[in-house]
Design a protein around this nucleic acid. Structure first.
Length: 274
DNA sequence: CATTGTCCCTGGAAGC
DNA sequence: TGCTTCCAGGGACAAT
């Protein structure tokens, strides 16, 4: 469930502690997260490497190494990266140790998380769409991305090859904020709606980053602090509650086998348009 | 290419 | 109490 704001928060907190550190040991307790590389080879190629930079692309974390390789981690649903955890973690998959004694623990209950080590990071993140907080992402660009698409806007917002980093929670929030029904065909949005959606996406993501992400489900920050972005949620994770705007009951609808929460009053589906 | 559906995975909640 | 079923959902992949 970590989405862009959560991954950005993790990136910042890891950067503060890990930039310039060298790997002194790597312990692999579960090789499932390792993609396309054996535990032995993974460890060998990390040992002694210095972390030159930590960045984020969509929901991926990228660790630029002194060897010119990049370790890329995707936390998927339940993955977490913890710095010097006080207690032994139950679902520890990998432990990274660094010179100076810092420890980074990768935990993942459901084992969906993925860890890569590559020369060419584009092999992993090359197909991602536009970064929604970059200058490149304008209302005009968004309009171009949506034009002609018949898929529901919710499905398109979740498509990482279109826009990178938006997940289920923030897609629902952006649609509620703009009064757009999640099943509206993406190509049917008018320019006013697109402009509003563009603004809402940026505003909601920026605000959530400022709150350290949303501490719902299994999201955990590296240092153990709590994110508060979920206190701003109007519909996400609010099934059965009342709409803060009109008091109608928040509904759930399945869009591409994923739950979408929305207000049936504030986000009406225009029948002419479907 | 655009779009949709299935699978992966496991703990926790809900139902009986 | 204890068993079963459902649910969470990002992304790879296959199918259409």
């Amino acid at each position: 469930m970590p989405e862009l704001p959560e991954v950005e928060t993790i990136k910042r907190e890891l950067s503060a502690k890990l930039l310039g550190r060298r790997f002194s040991d790597v312990e692999i307790f579960d090789e499932k997260p390792l993609r396309g590389i054996s535990p032995r080879e993974f460890r060998r190629r990390l040992m002694g490497q210095r972390i030159e930079d930590i960045s984020r692309s969509g929901k991926y974390l990228l660790f630029q190494l002194s060897s010119d390789e990049t370790m890329i981690i995707h936390l998927r649903m339940t993955g977490a990266l913890l710095l010097d955890p006080k207690e032994r973690e139950k679902f520890t998959r990998i432990i990274f140790r660094f010179d100076g004694g810092t420890t980074l623990v990768f935990t993942d209950v459901r084992r969906f998380g993925a860890v890569y080590l590559v020369r060419n990071k584009a092999d992993i993140v090359g197909r991602l769409g536009v970064e929604p907080l970059s200058e490149e992402f304008t209302p005009e660009v968004l309009a171009g991305l949506l034009a002609g698409r018949r898929a529901p806007i919710k499905a398109v917002l979740l498509d990482q090859t279109v826009i990178a980093g938006i997940g289920n929670m923030y897609a629902d929030e952006a649609l509620f904020s703009t009064g757009i029904h999640p099943l509206t065909p993406a190509g049917k949005l008018n320019s006013t709606q697109i402009r509003a959606l563009h603004g809402a996406i940026r505003k909601i993501l920026v605000r959530a980053i400022g709150s350290g992400g949303a501490s719902v489900s299994t999201y955990r920050r590296p240092g153990g602090e709590i994110g508060t972005a979920h206190f701003d949620f109007k519909v996400a994770h609010c099934g059965g509650k009342k709409c803060p705007r009109c008091r109608a009951e928040i509904q759930r609808v399945r869009v591409r086998n994923r739950s979408s929460y929305y207000c049936p009053q504030c986000q009406e589906l225009d029948r002419d348009v479907t």
